[in-house]
Design a binder for these strands. Structure first.
Lengths: 118, 118
DNA sequence: TTCTCGCTTAGCACGCTTGCTAATTGTTAG
DNA sequence: CTAACAATTAGCAAGCGTGCTAAGCGAGAA
């Protein structure tokens, strides 16, 4: 699986930045399959169109896929992608490489400012 | 370690929603220790005050801690917390329980809408 | 003391996001 | 065909987030 681009990572984090969208993701994850738009919309306080837009954000981040069937839209979670992108980013937090660690460097000087401010 | 509250999860995802803040987190993670505010500010295009605010957002999400020393502010990553909150949320995506999985339920009816719209 | 340095605070502008209602599209039922 | 239904699109208002510059504050140097 290829490494996600900066834009892709950004889209994913942006998509997950809203409670309602994280909730949708959890609902889909827990369902284990597809859920129709209206079912999801009914779980929230806000209006159906608002949910529609949240779904679109998730879709554009690649976290969710739609299958239209008659007059209903069935959404399912792209669990693989979500775990891949998030997990991949998390992996970059390891001090330096999971197995090989060398001496952690101390604090740097602050002298690299060149009149960017003032 | 206790389960993060909804607000805490929200704060973390919100903090990570901005590229610059994720970048700061990575810089701190990679440094392996503390970095002064000015050093971080120098890594970005935007002005120092903007970085200051990003740092504050990270701090209020509990992802970062400050140690003031003379006239410099040293920031260090709270790696444990970051991995705990994010990892914990990711764990909720497993179909249903990591080991015990029962039959995934099919799509629900859509009939729970009660005049929320129109 | 006075000056400079490191950083934060204050205040403003602008754009994006999120919510809503109304209207539209497309599908199925009568 | 017409009516009802599922869902989306359009368009608007309000609030939030992010960027900037200018000003402020405490610590150290001269």
């Amino acid at each position: 699986m290829k490494k996600p681009s900066l834009e892709e990572v950004d889209a994913v984090f942006l998509a997950l930045a809203h409670e309602a969208r994280r909730h949708i993701v959890l609902l889909l994850a827990h369902s284990g399959g597809e859920l129709p738009s209206g079912y999801l919309a009914a779980r929230f306080q806000h209006s159906w169109p608002t949910t529609t837009r949240h779904l679109r954000v998730l879709e554009e981040a690649g976290l969710v896929e739609v299958r239209r069937e008659g007059r209903t839209s069935n959404y399912r979670l792209n669990r693989e992608r979500l775990q891949h992108v998030l997990g991949d980013w998390l992996r970059h937090l390891e001090p330096v490489g999971p197995e090989k660690k060398w001496a952690p460097s101390g604090p740097r000087s602050t002298a690299e400012m060149k009149g960017k401010n003032r």
